[in-house]
């Protein structure tokens, strides 16, 4: 009897495993045709000289020359003759500050929006608005726009924005804080708009996390006489800490693969403006490996610090 029941159960498990493949099948097809195959092809392109001919293209083996070019010789005329690797390095450095600021800001904002106050739903609606306002082509058009910057908020605002920041820097420096810390604060103030507009999705994730914390935890700790401050550090923070990892990784990827970034622009221009498909592919692969490394390192560091319930 027992054996019979076990056999039937196995049948269901097997059937469910089969159905799993059925549900995931569209992804497997897409992965093969629109991702893995193009990835392999792009790798092959990076090792060949591609010439576009009538009705197609020809490949001429080129070894790792394009990788050598990208790593050692390439200079970008559009970016003051900096090398490709310098530009990647600068991109990564800028990313580090950006990610730190975005994660801190979105955590702060989510906590604000989680409190009860009048007009909360309006405030939430506006806080998520950058998801719409600052996406794709709009961000490309807005950044560096003449009238937008002359009227105030974007980073290109050379006169007023930096003027205030200088005053702020002077005040902060007079308090004998560490210069690096002052630089960080000043850059945060200068980029406040950029940070707020890059935080929409992250606020959403943190907010959803805050709301998934069971209220009974707070009730219990309030009975024990904990203050709001203690509640925050002993309950709220550890409970949402896994989301810090999620949001950090999301922001890293979002910042680095943003098609308006300098490196991305170079990769696109080499392909479609200068028709150097092989070089462009090699650069894209180098950049991809760099991003993978960064994501792996960050995940490694943060996941040690994160608190998991189970």
């Amino acid at each position: 009897m027992a054996a019979k029941r076990k056999k039937r159960r196995m049948g269901l498990e097997e059937k469910k495993a089969m159905m799993g493949y059925v549900f995931v099948l569209p992804f497997i097809i897409g992965l093969l045709t629109f991702f893995l195959f193009p990835m392999i092809q792009s790798f092959i392109f990076s090792l060949n000289v591609i010439e576009v001919v009538e009705g197609g293209y020809t490949l001429r083996p080129n070894g790792i020359n394009y990788y050598k070019t990208a790593l050692l010789q390439y200079v970008s005329t559009a970016n003051e003759g900096k090398s490709f690797m310098t530009l990647i390095g600068e991109g990564l450095a800028a990313m580090a500050t950006q990610v730190l600021l975005v994660v801190i800001f979105s955590f702060f904002a989510a906590n604000l929006l989680n409190q009860k106050f009048r007009g909360r739903s309006v405030a939430r609606a506006i806080f998520f608005l950058p998801v719409i306002l600052m996406s794709g082509v709009i961000i490309a058009v807005d950044s560096g726009d003449l009238l937008q910057s002359s009227m105030g908020l974007t980073q290109t605002d050379a006169q007023e924005g930096s003027f205030q920041a200088v005053a702020l820097a002077r005040v902060l420096l007079s308090t004998r804080l560490d210069t690096r810390f002052v630089d960080f604060i000043v850059s945060a103030v200068n980029r406040i708009y950029e940070i707020v507009s890059a935080s929409g999705v992250q606020i959403l994730v943190f907010l959803a996390g805050l709301q998934s914390i069971s209220p009974s935890l707070f009730e219990a700790s309030n009975i024990e006489g904990a203050t709001g401050w203690e509640n925050f550090w002993k309950i709220t923070f550890p409970m949402v800490s896994p989301l810090i990892l999620v949001n950090t990784v999301y922001t890293v990827i979002d910042t680095l693969t943003n098609s308006n970034s300098v490196v991305m622009t170079i990769i696109r221009d080499e392909a479609f403006r200068n028709a150097k498909y092989g070089l462009s592919s090699a650069m894209a692969w180098i950049y991809f490996v760099a991003i993978m490394l960064v994501v792996a390192i960050i995940t490694g560091i943060i996941s040690r610090l994160v608190f998991y319930q189970e």
């Binding site: 498990e13 469910k16 495993a17 089969m18 159905m19 799993g20 493949y21 549900f23 995931v24 992804f27 497997i28 992965l31 629109f34 991702f35 195959f37 193009p38 990835m39 092809q41 792009s42 392109f45 293209y57 990827i253 680095l256 693969t257 098609s259 991305m264 990769i267 696109r268 392909a271 498909y277 462009s280 592919s281 894209a284 692969w285 950049y287 991809f288 991003i291 993978m292 994501v295």
Partner: peptide
């Protein structure tokens, strides 16, 4: 559903997010 290769496939879902679309843009175009 639990099935063989689920972890690997899901890791690939994340990889599709990490890979800059510029890497596969030329092959996709062609």
């Amino acid at each position: 559903f639990k099935f063989k290769g689920r972890g690997l496939l899901f890791a690939l879902v994340i990889i599709t997010l990490i890979v800059p679309p510029q890497t596969i843009m030329i092959p996709l175009y062609l």
